[in-house]
Amino acid sequence: MNIIKFRQASFDLLTDFLVNINKENKDTLDSLSKCSGCFKNANVMEYIFHITRALDLDPQVGYHATELLQRFMTTHLTKQLTIPSPQGASGIQPISVEDSVLDSLKTKFPDIVFSCVQLASKMSLHVNVIDNNTAIRFLHSLGYTATKKTLLDSELLVLKGLDYKLAVTNPLIYVEILLEVLVHNEPSIPIERTYGLCQQVLQFVVLERATIFDSLLMVTIRSKQPTTEQRELFVTVTEDCMLLGVSVIAVALYIFHISQWEKVVGELSNITGISRRSIIDFAHVTLLHIVDSSSL
């Protein structure tokens, strides 16, 4: 398990980290597709988290795998759905191109998800790499048919789909960097304990993503009946990792260090340029869902 060591990075290094993740976040938001976020639903995330727990992988691997999966599936589906049908075939096709592509993915999808986890584990210096024997045993234990060839084919499919670009920043990295910068500015914050709580809050938000963002959308537009256009525009909020990162930290510190909460929210706003109102709204919505879930 990866043990994060805080308070060791210099101010200049922290500044570079912050500039880099801010740029990556903006670039991502500027190039969103209609598929953005579609493969971050609760079932997929539960499956990925189950894999990481069962194979004793660091949580970082799960979040990294999620980003790889989202990017791969977006690229793959976009490519498949824009391939023109063979000339003269349109009149004899029993199903649409979309249905055909989705049907072909049904059997491959568990392998694709696992390949993303496997690739993410290979990118980490702090965890054991999942070898094919372990992978096959695990997939068989879940009732999936898998061979070394199918796993290799799946891994190559993902690698090619991502153009071999596996270095992506995931939400947990945003939390870690923002927390490091925050504690540099506010040394009194008990960072190690706060980080542990941040991990729990982040996982909760990821698993309850749909309901939390639905609630946040209604708070933002002050209406319980968002239009289709409002939902489409709100995708830039659901995919904003910087907003997610500061809000997760705000929730954790509300629970753990409430006496300093307003000061911390102000500092997070200064660090990121995200308004206090946006951070507070996201934090309050998340806290309400945490309370509701704990009372069930």
Rank of each mutant, 00 (worst) to 15 (best):
I83V: 06
I92E: 14
K108E: 00
S36K: 10
N43F: 11
K23M: 07
A167N: 14
T236H: 06
H64G: 06
H289M: 12
V129A: 10
S141M: 12
A252F: 04
I177E: 00
L233D: 05
S269I: 01
Y174Q: 06
E192F: 12
E176V: 03
A167D: 12
A283K: 13
L287N: 02
F234I: 03
S188V: 01
L233K: 12
D16M: 10
E208A: 08
Q87M: 10
Q203F: 02
L268P: 05
G245A: 07
Y254P: 00
D240I: 05
D103M: 14
A146P: 03
L253P: 02
T15F: 00
R7P: 02
T15C: 03
T28D: 11
L13D: 07
Y195Q: 07
I212W: 13
H50A: 04
I3W: 09
L69A: 03
L68Q: 06
N43Y: 14
S294Y: 05
G273H: 02
D27I: 09
L156R: 10
D58Q: 13
E46S: 12
S247I: 10
L172Y: 03
T15I: 02
A146H: 08
L268D: 09
F204P: 01
D131Y: 14
V183T: 15
D56R: 15
M1S: 09
S124D: 14
I130E: 09
F6L: 01
T82H: 08
L178G: 04
L14P: 00
N41F: 07
L217I: 08
F282L: 04
V129F: 12
Q200D: 09
H289A: 11
L156I: 05
L69Y: 04
D111K: 15
L268R: 14
Y63K: 09
I21L: 07
A9Y: 11
D131N: 15
I212M: 14
I48E: 02
Y47P: 00
I112Y: 04
Q199H: 01
G196K: 14
I249V: 08
E155I: 01
R53H: 11
Q200P: 01
L179C: 00
T286H: 11
V291F: 04
I221A: 08
P190V: 07
L68A: 06
E67H: 13
A283G: 02
W261K: 12
T272E: 02
E180L: 03
R209C: 08
A250L: 00
Y144R: 13
R209S: 11
E24M: 06
Q60K: 13
S154C: 00
D292T: 03
N132W: 01
N185W: 10
E180N: 06
V183M: 13
K5R: 14
E239G: 00
I189K: 02
I4M: 08
I3Y: 12
L29S: 06
T220I: 01
K263S: 10
H284Q: 14
E232V: 01
S90R: 14
L159D: 00
H50F: 02
K106L: 06
D103S: 12
I191T: 06
R277N: 03
R276E: 10
D30E: 02
D12M: 13
F213L: 11
D103P: 01
